[in-house]
Amino acid sequence: MNEKQLKRLIENYLNGNCTEREKTLLDKVLDSYDSPADITQPLEDEHRLQNEIFSKITSEIEGDTSKVPPYPVKKRSSSRWLAVAATILVLIGMGSVYFSEQPLKQVPLHQTEILSSVTDWGQRNTITLSDGTTITLNAGSQLHYPKTFEGNTIRSVSLVGEAFFEVAKNPGKPFIIKTGKVTTRVLGTSFNINSYEFNDMISITVRTGKVQVESVSRSGKTDAVQLVPNEMAQYSRSNDSITKSIVDNDNYMDWKNGIIRFSDITFHEASKMLNRWYGVDISFENEALKKCHVTARYEHAKLQVVLESIKFATKGMDYEFTDQKKILLKGRCQN
C-alpha cells in the first residue's frame, strides 16, 4: 500500500464507502489512538510516527484476516474517531507524513500539531488560523487544521459539514480544503463549502476570487473545474461526478449572517434545516405534510417565531413540543 492508496482508503472510510473487511480492520488501527494528540505530539524518533501508522494499516488491510485474533470492540466516540481519521488525512495532505519504500526524510513534527473545532447542532463558531484565514463553521460541523502553517509548502485543512472561508492571500502557499473525495484549492478568496455527510452533494460556492475544485472518481480519474463569483461546483457522491452552475450566492451564504431562507422547498427539506439551525428533532404526524411547500426568509429569528409564521401561512399545519428539543408537525397544509 502506498500513500495514494492509503489516502483513498481513509477518504472512502470517511464517506462510508469501505468494504466491511476494510472497515473492521481500519477500526482496529484507529482505536489504538485515543485522540489526534497521539498522532501529532513531538516524538523522540521523528521516523516512528510515519512507520507506525503505515505499518499498522498495511499489516491489517493487507494481512490475512483469518490470522487476526478477536479483539474487544470499544464504544467509540464518533467525534473522537473522526478527528483521528481526519488528522491522518490532513497529515498526508500536508506532506508531513511520508509512506514509501525509500528511507524516510526527517520532518519537524512539532509543526504538525492538529487542532479541531466542532460545532453541535444549533451552534456556529468562527476560527482564525495562524495565517490570518477566517473560517465560520455552521452547525454540526468539524474542522481539523494545523496549529501553524510555518515551514509547509501548502496550507491544508479538513472539513466535515459546512463552513464559510475567507482565506488570507499567500501566492506561495496554496490553501487546500479536503472534504471527502473533493479537494478545493485557493490562494486567497472567500467561498462556502457544504459537505454534510447526510447529503449526497458536496457544494462549493464562491463569493470572491477564484477557486479550483477537484474530485477523484472511483476509477482514479481526476475531474476539475474552476469557479468565479456566483458559480457553484457540486460533487455527487452517488453519481461520482462533479458539475458546475451559476447560482445566487445569497441562497447559499445567508446562514453566515444569521439568515435562514426557505426557497419553495418541502416541509421535509425545511425540517432538516431547522434541525441543524436550532438543534431540534422534527417529526411528522403524516407523510402528506412532508410534501407541503414553504417560501420564507427569517433573520436572527427564534424557533417559535419561525414555526408560528409557517403555521399562519399554511392555514392547517400545527406543531407540538413533545419534549424540550422534539417537535411534532401535524395537521395538513392548504397553500
Rank of each mutant, 00 (worst) to 15 (best):
R80W: 04
G63R: 11
L274S: 00
I265L: 09
T266N: 06
G132I: 07
S236Y: 07
S141Y: 01
M201Y: 06
N17E: 11
I176Y: 06
K315G: 10
V107K: 07
N194K: 13
L109H: 13
L30W: 05
E162G: 04
D45F: 14
N2E: 09
F149H: 01
W255T: 03
V305Q: 12
D64C: 05
Q50S: 15
K67A: 12
F175R: 06
N239Q: 13
V90Q: 06
V97P: 07
T189K: 08
T136Q: 05
D223W: 02
K315W: 11
E113Y: 14
A139P: 00
S117L: 15
P72T: 01
A313D: 03
K7W: 05
Q226F: 11
K4F: 09
N192E: 13
A83R: 01
F284R: 02
I88W: 05
K173E: 09
Q334M: 07
I202H: 01
K325G: 03
I310Q: 04
K256F: 05
A288S: 10
D200A: 02
G316K: 05
S35K: 07
Q5Y: 11
K173W: 11
L89A: 03
P108I: 14
L25N: 03
L129S: 06
S116V: 08
I127M: 09
S245Y: 04
I135L: 04
E287C: 05
M317E: 02
L6C: 04
R297F: 09
T112H: 12
P70D: 05
T134V: 08
L129R: 02
I246F: 09
H293R: 09
E231D: 14
E46Y: 14
E214M: 06
D281E: 11
T65F: 15
E197H: 09
V73K: 11
Q102D: 12
F262M: 04
S141G: 04
Q334F: 08
V29A: 08
S238C: 14
Q334D: 10
N17Y: 08
S283Q: 10
V68K: 10
Y71F: 10
Q226E: 15
P174S: 14
P36V: 12
L137N: 01
N335V: 11
Q234T: 02
F149A: 01
S203A: 09
N170C: 12
I10Q: 08
K244A: 10
E52N: 15
P103N: 13
P108Q: 13
V68T: 11
K23T: 15
L6P: 01
S158R: 02
Q142D: 08
Y319V: 06
I92H: 02
L289R: 00
I39L: 12
D120A: 15
T134K: 06
D323Q: 12
E162T: 06
G316P: 09
M273C: 06
T183D: 14
E308L: 10
E287M: 11
T134R: 07
